[in-house]
């Protein structure tokens, strides 16, 4: 599984960081999502799925 980010869509709501802090962070200057681990496995992969669901701007997607 690979996490794909469309940074142009990200509105910096930080839902991904709340959901999976081990996978996501936010840039300090513009709040845009920073992916810490692009290829999560196991439980982390489930968290990645949840992050995709909660992201309010559909900035995140997964390539299985």
């Amino acid at each position: 599984m690979k996490i794909v980010v469309d940074t142009g869509r990200c509105v910096g709501a930080g839902q991904c960081v709340l959901t999976a802090p081990s996978l996501f962070d936010q840039d300090d200057t513009d709040g845009v999502v920073v992916v810490r681990d692009r290829t999560p496995n196991g439980a982390a992969a489930e968290w990645a799925r949840e992050a995709v669901r909660v992201c309010p701007s559909r900035a995140l997607s997964l390539h299985e």
Partner: peptide
Amino acid sequence: HTTARRLVVGEFTVRR
């Protein structure tokens, strides 16, 4: 909107 929001959203990150 994106430009205006990006200017300030860094102040509202979880970490900050």
